[in-house]
Design a protein around this nucleic acid. Structure first.
Lengths: 130, 130
DNA sequence: TCTATAGTTCATAAGTTACGAACTACAGGA
DNA sequence: TCCTGTAGTTCGTAACTTATGAACTATAGA
């Protein structure tokens, strides 16, 4: 009988920059992380569809594991489901601005891919033009 | 007769966050990039030894290619050698702070690995205080 | 031309990732 | 208690990626 290995959450000092970059270099994982940063507590199956793409649940489960073992998220079982939240405050203490800047860059890139008409009007800059 | 494919330098709008993160998630590539950020113009064979590790030149060549094709560096042949420099200003325009913050995080991590006596005393902060 | 140096390409072995099938874990009935 | 449904994990394996030695290209200088 196979048993279920316990969830691994590295302690803050065992989190590495390489690990964080690698985890967030995958677009599916970056999308999951971005969503969790907004809606803490989301579960694995909340992500069976990501940006019009179906992701098999075994794949999703591995992505959550990758994020968890890179130290980016914390997962907790609640009954039959798994609630996830980011560890952004801890990580930000150790690597100031790192995760935030990465997610911001992902946002910039996503905005560029949208046709201009679908983009949210950019927040007005102080130096806003004519 | 095999020919030598031309160097590929993506234009700034084809550079992706995923690509940057993936390229810099490798410790050898991050070390190369860090060094290039200081000593622009370094060549491939300047890196045959990195942090006490010997890297075969074919491997190094692939790492330079990965950095180049991710858009992080620009390589130019000068006679028999290849001079490399970062594209940090361009990238910083498009993804503000991204590369700098990543390199800073790598530095923080490297400093932690050194025994305290070997660490450079941290630069004094403006708000540095008792 | 020949020789030396710098770097690239190719073949392939080693490592990593994606995903379906089968499983564990838990909750809520009957 | 057992049964059923839902959530997520593990395993096997196919597909992909990466590292490296050997053989190559490209260039400089004698």
């Amino acid at each position: 009988m196979r048993s279920m290995r316990p969830l691994v959450h590295p302690s803050i000092e065992d989190i590495t920059v390489e690990g964080i970059l690698h985890a967030l270099s995958d677009p599916v994982r970056a999308a999951i992380y971005a969503e969790l940063a907004i809606s803490s507590g989301a579960t694995c199956s909340n992500f069976l569809k990501i940006s019009d793409r179906d992701i098999p649940k075994s794949t999703l489960s591995q992505h959550f594991r990758a994020l968890r073992e890179a130290g980016l998220i914390r997962s907790e079982r609640h009954g039959v489901e798994m609630r996830n939240c980011t560890r952004c405050e801890e990580i930000n203490q150790r690597f100031p601005g790192l995760v935030m800047t990465i997610m911001k860059a992902h946002q910039i890139q996503a905005a560029e891919r949208l046709p201009a008409t679908k983009r949210k009007p950019a927040a007005k800059k102080k130096t806003g033009g004519a």
